[in-house]
Design a protein around this nucleic acid. Structure first.
Lengths: 132, 132
DNA sequence: GCTTGACTTAGAGTGAACTCGAAGTGATAA
DNA sequence: TTATCACTTCGAGTTCACTCTAAGTCAAGC
């Protein structure tokens, strides 16, 4: 099974523009072309793209993703480096999750504050003082 | 207890530049000045800033945070709007957490793949074919 | 009185990640 | 064969959130 750039883009919620941009940045080193020069996305490419999107969606900068791509192109001699990069990033993602959980709790508390009708008067009072 | 702009910035891992930028954007509508015209951060202001940072760190754009600030300045007539904004954003944060969890699992799987020595040969083979 | 240092403003500059437009190619359909 | 459509490249433009610079004020210490 193969896909055009637009089909691939659609599957990952991206645009063809963005995929070409990623290609230019070196994030799609394995995508090949057909006789007309158009990009052809294979299932392997789609799996690769899935990892790229995973890294991007978890906040890894494009430069760092490119480093991973460069290592992949170099072959099995770089497996330790790649593993280390992913492991360190995974740790970072777990940290992000904890941070988001803490922030979600703060939001819950704030919403709860607004939900208590007794606080409405307090908000008015605090607003007069200059904060809530 | 009050704080200078630098003390406030430090407490939230920001710079004074960033706090002035937030002020200019309307995110700190309650921070007042001393006789010299310098910003004075009260404990109320620090709590306010904590919420602003929570919204910012969870990906809310500055424009939307400003909307919340504008509503707060308007007083208790906007409590429903504020509550709705926070509730909707909280939902979005929970969605983010789930997305990050899924991505963390993908990373775990990928790291596990690299950890199995049998896969190293596979990586070499796949690299020859143009993907891994 | 002079220096130092923390603050002030306005506005320009930066970097990341797109996002778009122009101009062109190649395959298919009427 | 002419139109349509999806693709191509190159490079400029946009948005966001800072980040920094320049020029200046103000209070404290020597």
């Amino acid at each position: 099974m193969t896909y055009t750039i637009n089909e691939a883009a659609q599957q990952f919620g991206l645009t063809a523009h963005t995929l070409r941009f990623y290609d230019k940045e070196g994030l799609l080193p394995f995508v090949s072309r057909n006789a007309s020069g158009n990009r052809v996305f294979t299932d392997d490419d789609m799996n690769w793209l899935k990892l790229i999107c995973c890294l991007k969606d978890t906040g890894m900068p494009i430069k760092e993703i490119k480093q991973y791509c460069d290592w992949s192109k170099q072959g099995s001699s770089t497996i330790e480096e790649r593993k280390a990069l992913l492991a360190s990033h995974r740790k970072e993602v777990l940290r992000q999750i904890e941070a988001l959980k803490a922030n979600a709790e703060l939001l819950t508390a704030k919403i709860g504050f607004y939900e208590d009708p007794g606080n409405v008067r307090l908000v008015e009072e605090l607003a007069r003082r200059g904060a809530d």
